[in-house]
Write a protein that binds this DNA or RNA. Structure first.
Lengths: 226, 226
DNA sequence: TGTACATCAGTGAACGCGCGTTCACTGATGTAC
DNA sequence: TGTACATCAGTGAACGCGCGTTCACTGATGTAC
């Protein structure tokens, strides 16, 4: 995930942060370096909200007070982390969905992509899967926002798929919500398992998602079930 | 919830904790008093893992070091809280299930009971809904254990229901797991809303649960969907 | 090109704070006789 | 019943620690002329 964050050079980043200023000393570390440092520290047993400013500064190799040159406080860094985590997750899953857009296999492919990313992007996904439940209000809203993006994209996919199959869904928005929450809940469970056991989660998750989809198809056809 | 915790008198509690000793000074505060104090402090924006020993002692009206007379450390208190939360939740939902055990309405009744408890037992439910995602390993295991109890009871209910209706379910254990995770996820969302808006969560949750149930019935009948 | 100057990222020292934990203690409660 | 004693829940003081935040500073970088 490091390359994801460091493909801006320092100069560009500075201009992005302070577009009006063209003078002054160049930064030797950037906001991205601090985000990277924070990501190194979070994990299965550390949530962002338990990180201290001094810890992050230490990891990044700067004095504690230098932190303030880049972020107002730890909350601001946390929000930046959530944004980045959400952005990268949507990229990943978006790619997976495009790869396999023929009916049912889209579920399996997406779930597999998701679980695969748990291995390689563990810290980044932790943030979305778990950190939304604790922390400040602004923090929670940021996570909720990423979840909504995810749901909306899925909902659009489901409607499109229903038209192709000529099998519309009952309440597609709720189908999307249920599927999203379920995948995230199962992903959170997986994060407590060793990497080699992540695969065990895929099959049950796929089956549960199919139950929702099958149920919504049936309910669209048979209104007495609603 | 206070009455739930204080129906043991101090004497009994002491004997329960130290059954071998029949001598010594009587405690003026009990483990339960500390648990009550901790419950007063947790809420939508405070997780147990962020409580300090000194805060709990202050709330309970004892000196910080007196805490050690009752618990080894804060982790031990946290585990006790989880046990209690799980026990009370299972009681509540168990009662709801017995009240309405005729087919579909069981879903609505259970969800309504669950959401209703969010109002009255907010702090207690917070623990199960949200605290399992952060904190120590022992902490997470305790939450996972309560979730499993919940799932197993639901699974037994679903199998029994399938026999009565003569409509068996595909993978009832996964149906139970999916329903449990979904209700908990929706409950966690509800906890961030003001009380008067909790009702809004009920309808979508009921629909999503019906999708799972309907899907599992259909998949049992039509194996090509599996 | 060279020089004087402005900018500002990063620093070292210091602050007051709440924390978990320890220690030796106190004194009310209950027991033994 | 009365007395001497044991128990142990609760205490006050103290400790060292890591924390967030502040301050005046330094000195490399870039600009103006």
């Amino acid at each position: 995930m490091a390359e994801f964050m460091t493909h801006f050079d320092t100069k560009n980043q500075e201009q992005e942060n302070h577009p009006q200023s063209s003078q002054g000393r160049r930064a030797t570390i950037s906001r991205e370096d601090l985000i990277t440092a924070a990501l190194k520290l979070v994990g299965p047993h550390r949530s962002i909200s338990t990180l201290s400013l001094r810890e992050v500064a230490r990891e990044a190799g700067i004095a504690p007070n230098s932190f303030y040159r880049h972020f107002k406080d730890m909350d601001e860094l946390a929000i930046a982390l959530i944004d980045q985590a959400g952005r990268s997750l949507r990229l990943i899953i978006g790619a997976a969905r495009q790869r396999a857009s023929i009916e049912r296999s889209v579920i399996r492919t997406s779930v597999e992509s998701f679980m695969e990313q748990l291995n390689t992007n563990e810290a980044l996904l932790h943030i979305l899967l778990r950190e939304g439940t604790v922390g400040s209000l602004a923090f929670k809203r940021a996570v909720e926002r990423e979840l909504s993006f995810f749901e909306e994209e899925l909902c659009a996919d489901l409607i499109r798929l229903g038209q192709i199959k000529n099998a519309p869904l009952y309440e597609p928005a709720l189908v999307a919500k249920g599927m999203t929450r379920l995948v995230f809940a199962m992903g959170a469970t997986a994060l407590d398992l060793p990497h080699e056991r992540h695969a065990e989660i895929i099959e049950p998750t796929v089956i549960m998602l199919r139950m929702i989809l099958t149920g919504a198809e049936k309910m669209a056809v048979d209104p007495s079930l609603q």
